[in-house]
């Protein structure tokens, strides 16, 4: 009983260490060394795939989240006759937390899953193997442009998400609930600081982007090359990258705003 427990723990830790090692090695081979000759055009292509194609879901969600936030915030603030602070509440909660986190979760669902499915399919149809046999490194040709595009795309998407959400908050707060337009903007301007609020939010989303794209590429590259394997990997990407992003958000918030 005890020996089987110990061997189980050993097995699990070994698997975990093996996984971490493989993932780090993959990241190393992708990012270091001579880059692919056509890295820039490939990167632009992926920026379109991961960034532009994620825009509809990011912008729509941003709008609705901003509107809901404004509603809920207003009804709490109005009890204290503080509804003029609505702009500050919306902007701070969006820039520091909601923006980076919700955009990251949406990105994991939209772009992360498609990355895993795409790479997994390339693996199962031997496209990756054939690339290797043509003396072309799949790390540099396939993974690197996707990783860099993911890291660039998510912070930009997060900023656009924030802009839409703040506008959505304005629509509800000012146009519907009657908060003064000047107060909405000036209170926001007064309470939001560039470095601690805006830049910290961007920094968060850069870190989320690395996590999500890395997990997505790893799960695709090491997917079991069958239809079932790919679908399992896709699910795993969304679940694991979302959880890691949320856990990392807690750590980052504690570091950035905790002291």
């Amino acid at each position: 009983m005890i020996t089987s427990f110990i061997s189980h723990v050993g097995q699990t830790s070994l698997t975990f260490v093996h996984l971490i090692g493989r993932a780090c090695l993959m990241l190393w081979l992708t990012l270091f060394g001579k880059p692919h000759r056509k890295l820039f055009p490939l990167f632009i292509q992926q920026l379109f795939q991961l960034g532009i194609l994620s825009l509809p879901i990011i912008l729509t969600s941003g709008l609705f989240i901003g509107m809901v936030l404004s509603f809920q915030g207003y009804y709490v603030l109005v009890d204290y006759a503080a509804e003029q602070s609505l702009g500050s509440l919306s902007a701070l909660s969006l820039l520091r937390e909601l923006g980076p986190v919700v955009a990251a979760l949406l990105f994991a669902g939209r772009a992360g899953s498609s990355l895993t499915a795409e790479i997994g399919l390339m693996q199962s149809t031997e496209q990756i193997a054939s690339m290797e046999m043509m003396a072309v490194s799949p790390y540099k040709r396939v993974l690197a442009p996707r990783l860099i595009a993911g890291i660039v795309a998510l912070p930009l998407l997060t900023l656009l998400f924030n802009v839409m959400a703040i506008w959505g908050g304005y629509l509800i707060g000012v146009s519907w609930l009657g908060v003064d337009s000047g107060a909405y903007w000036s209170v926001m301007q007064g309470s939001v600081d560039y470095v601690p609020d805006v830049l910290n939010g961007v920094l968060k989303s850069v870190i989320f982007a690395i996590i999500i794209t890395w997990v997505a590429l790893y799960n695709g590259y090491y997917a079991v090359p069958t239809a079932r394997g790919i679908s399992l990997s896709t699910t795993k990407t969304v679940v694991i990258s979302s959880l890691l992003a949320l856990a990392m958000d807690f750590v980052l918030t504690a570091l950035m705003f905790g002291a």
């Binding site: 399919l121 149809t125 031997e126 496209q127 193997a129 054939s130």
Partner: peptide
């Protein structure tokens, strides 16, 4: 390759 492995 057995499947051809063409880029889709």
């Amino acid at each position: 390759f057995q499947s051809g492995a063409l880029f889709n």
